[in-house]
């Protein structure tokens, strides 16, 4: 278990990480299985997103508040803001186009 950038956030970080990890453990395989159609995928995704919120939402809010404060104290908020403006990365990066001659 790694540390938070601020020691006071480390207990919350570890609680959140364990919560996420235990949720994630049961996520991937059924998600792959549910990906055969967009309907089953959406149904599964909605169920699991709600479950994640219900399980880890509270500890996440506490941890987020702590780490946001720490980020600001370290002077990282401006650098982070700049990086987000330059590269928001809200959507997954599409794979490079496959070259038809080498395929």
């Amino acid at each position: 278990m790694s540390q938070s950038l601020s020691p006071e956030c480390t207990p919350l970080k570890q609680a959140y990480d364990s919560c996420f990890n235990s949720w994630f453990e049961g996520y991937l395989e059924p998600a792959i299985a549910a990906s055969t159609s967009s309907e089953t995928r959406a149904a599964y995704s909605k169920k699991k997103a709600d479950e994640f919120q219900a399980k880890c939402g509270k500890v996440w809010e506490e941890y987020k508040a702590c780490v946001q404060k720490a980020v600001k104290e370290k002077g990282l908020d401006k650098l982070l803001q700049q990086a987000r403006e330059e590269n928001p990365l809200v959507e997954p990066i599409p794979p490079p186009p496959v070259n038809s001659t080498t395929k």
Binding site: Q3, C9, A42, A49, F52, W60, Q68, L80
Partner: peptide, 11 residues
């Protein structure tokens, strides 16, 4: 140190 500062699960 590693900190998650944002995480979303697309419904």
């Amino acid at each position: 140190s590693i900190d998650t500062i944002d995480r979303t699960v697309d419904p």
